[in-house]
Amino acid sequence: MVEYTCGCEDTFYELCREAGLTYIRRITRLDGAVQAIHETYRWRCEETHEVWIALLNGEAQ
């Protein structure tokens, strides 16, 4: 994992790196128990970083 949002929220995100590619993982919890984990496609670092910044700024769709 490279970066992450606050894990104190019910939904939080992790910016991950694997084999030279990066992706974003979304984790949702209910009452502290993980309910779902979703991951984006693996991208080059520059592409993922653009999406990560948009996510942090509330602009990702």
Rank of each mutant, 00 (worst) to 15 (best):
G32N: 08
D10W: 01
Q35Y: 03
Q35I: 12
R42E: 01
R29S: 13
I37Q: 09
G20S: 08
L55I: 04
T11R: 13
R29L: 04
T22I: 02
T48M: 06
H49F: 11
Y13H: 08
R44M: 10
W43N: 13
E18N: 13
A36G: 05
Y23T: 03
H38R: 14
L21D: 06
I24F: 05
R42A: 08
I37A: 07
E18D: 13
Y23I: 01
E59H: 11
A33C: 10
Q35C: 05
R26Y: 06
I53C: 00
Q61Y: 11
T40D: 04
R26A: 14
M1V: 12
G32V: 07
W52D: 03
E14S: 02
C45Y: 09
W43C: 08
E3G: 05
C16Y: 03
V51W: 07
G7E: 07
C45V: 12
G20Q: 04
L21C: 07
R29P: 01
I24K: 07
V2G: 04
W43A: 10
H38Q: 15
E50G: 08
E14Y: 07
V2K: 15
G20P: 08
E47D: 12
F12L: 04
E46M: 06
N57I: 01
Q61L: 13
W52Y: 05
H49Q: 13
Y13I: 02
E47H: 03
R29A: 07
C16N: 14
C16L: 02
E18C: 12
R29N: 05
R42C: 09
E59V: 06
Y4M: 14
G20N: 05
L30Q: 11
T28W: 03
I27A: 00
Y41L: 15
L56A: 08
L21I: 02
E50H: 10
R26L: 08
T5H: 04
H49M: 14
R17T: 10
T22R: 10
T11S: 11
V51Q: 08
T28C: 14
E47L: 07
E3T: 04
T5G: 01
V34R: 13
R42M: 08
R29I: 01
C45E: 13
E47R: 09
T22P: 07
L15W: 14
G58H: 03
G32I: 02
R26M: 14
E46I: 11
V2A: 00
Q61G: 14
Y13T: 00
C6L: 10
H49R: 15
G7F: 08
H49V: 11
V51P: 02
L15R: 09
H49S: 11
C8W: 08
N57V: 02
I37S: 07
Q35S: 09
L56N: 10
A60P: 06
E18M: 14
R25H: 01
R44Q: 09
E18T: 02
T11Q: 14
A54N: 10
R29V: 00
C8V: 06
G7P: 09
M1K: 04
Y4N: 15
Y13N: 04
Y41A: 15
I27F: 00
C16A: 02
D31I: 09
Q35A: 03
A54E: 10
